Simulated scan of single mutants.
Amino acid sequence: MDSLLRIVERAKWRILGRKNVVGVGVGYKEVGLRRTEQPSIIVFVSKKEAPENLSREELVPFKINGVETDVVEIGEVRLLDSERTKLVRPAQPGLSIGHYKVSAGTFGAVVKDRHTGEPLILSNNHILANATNGRDGRAAVGDPILQPGEYDGGTRQDRIATLVRFIPLQKGEAPATCPVANAFIRWANMVVQTIRPNYNLRIFKREGSSNVVDCAVARPVRADIITDEIYGVGKVQGKTIARPGMPVFKSGRTTGLTRGVVTAVGATMEVKLDNENTAYFSDQVVTDMKSQGGDSGSLVLTEGNRAVGLLFAGSDKVTIFNHIQTVLDKLEVDL
C-alpha cells in the first residue's frame, strides 16, 4: 500500500481538479457488489456521470501510474454541523424529531395512508411512541410530536405532528407473577443466601413472540409543514428487498449520511430497550453501516434511492433495520 499512497500523493491535485471529484485515496476495488482484494486508487465523486457526458480532461483515467482506479459515488461532503438538530420548516426526513417524552430520533420518511391518502411522518415506535406496548401508558394516539426532538431543544411550541398509529413493542421478558414460581424463588433464595448472603435470585417469564418491526406514524399539523425530500439524499425512488452484499446508506440525525453493506438477512436479534428491558426481533437485516444513538428512525436506502428498511438499532460494529415492506404493511401506509 505504501507505493500506492506515494502515487496518490503525487497525483491527487490533478485528479481532484476534475468534474464531480471530491476525494481520492487508496483501497480495494469493488466489482459489482463485491469488494475484491485488488488494491486500487479510489476516486470519490459527488455524482457519477456517463463517460459520453464528460470531456477527455474530465474523465477519471482507468489507470494512474499503472494502478487501476475505482470511481465511487458518495455525494457532497460537508461538515457534520448541527443543521439536523435545528428547527426546520418545512421539516424533512433526516432531521431530529421525537415524541414529547423522548430525547430525539430521526424523521425517517413521508408516507401515505392507504385508506385516506394523507401524508404521514414515519419513524420508530421508540421515537414517535416512546417504546410503548400499547398497554403501559407510555404513549397514546394524539400525543404531540416535536421537531426538533426535546433533547435538541424542541418544546410544545415546536409541535409538528400528533401520534396516529404505532405497532406495539413486546418486551422479551418480565418479572414472573405466577404464585407457584414466586413461592419457589423464595425457597431458592433462602437456600442460596445461606451460602452467598449478598445474592438474590429472580425469575422472569418470556413475553409473547418476537417483534418484526419498530415503527409508528404521526399526522403533521398541516401538509405544508413537511417535505418528502430526504436531507442530503433527495426523494425516494421506489423500494426493493435487502439482500446480502447490497450497498446501503441512510441520512440520520446524529451521524448524517453513512454507507455500508448488508452482512446478514433473516436475523433474530436480542435488542436492549433500556437498562432493564430487552426485546427479540426476528427477520431483521444487519449491515456494517455506521450509526449512533439518535439515528433511529432513519430510512435505509440502496442504489437509485430505493428504500430497503427502517433503522432502529445497532452496536459499535453493526446497524440493524426492519424490512421496509413489512413496516409499510404493518402500518398500512405506502411510500
Rank of each mutant, 00 (worst) to 15 (best):
M1W: 09
M1P: 07
D2T: 11
L4V: 08
R14E: 14
L16Y: 04
R18A: 10
R18T: 11
R18E: 05
N20T: 15
G23M: 03
V24K: 01
V26R: 04
V26L: 01
K29T: 06
E30C: 04
V31I: 14
R34P: 01
R34L: 13
Q38G: 00
S40D: 11
I41M: 02
I41N: 03
V45K: 09
S46D: 15
K47V: 12
K47S: 11
A50G: 02
P51H: 11
R56W: 13
R56V: 15
R56N: 13
R56L: 14
F62K: 12
I64T: 05
E68T: 05
T69R: 00
I74M: 08
E83C: 08
T85S: 09
L87A: 12
V88N: 11
V88D: 06
R89T: 11
L95P: 00
I97L: 07
A104M: 10
G108W: 03
A109L: 11
D113A: 07
H115A: 13
P119N: 12
L122K: 00
N125L: 14
H126M: 10
H126K: 07
N130T: 10
G134M: 11
A139G: 10
V141Y: 02
G142Q: 07
D143S: 12
G153Y: 12
G154H: 07
G154W: 00
G154E: 02
R159V: 09
R159S: 09
R159C: 11
A161K: 01
V164C: 01
R165I: 09
F166E: 00
P168H: 14
A176H: 01
T177D: 14
I185R: 03
R186D: 13
R186F: 08
M190N: 07
V191A: 15
V191W: 14
V191D: 05
V192E: 13
T194G: 05
I195D: 10
P197V: 08
N198E: 15
Y199I: 14
L201K: 10
L201Y: 09
L201M: 12
R206M: 07
E207D: 09
E207T: 04
G208E: 10
D214Q: 08
R219A: 14
R222Q: 12
I225C: 08
I226V: 15
Y231C: 04
A242S: 06
R243A: 09
V248W: 03
R259Y: 15
R259V: 08
T263I: 11
A264S: 12
L273W: 03
N277P: 00
A279D: 00
D283M: 04
K290T: 14
Q292M: 15
S298D: 03
L301T: 03
L301W: 05
T302F: 00
T302H: 01
E303V: 07
G304W: 07
G304E: 03
G309V: 04
L310D: 05
L311K: 02
V327Q: 05
D329V: 04
V333K: 00
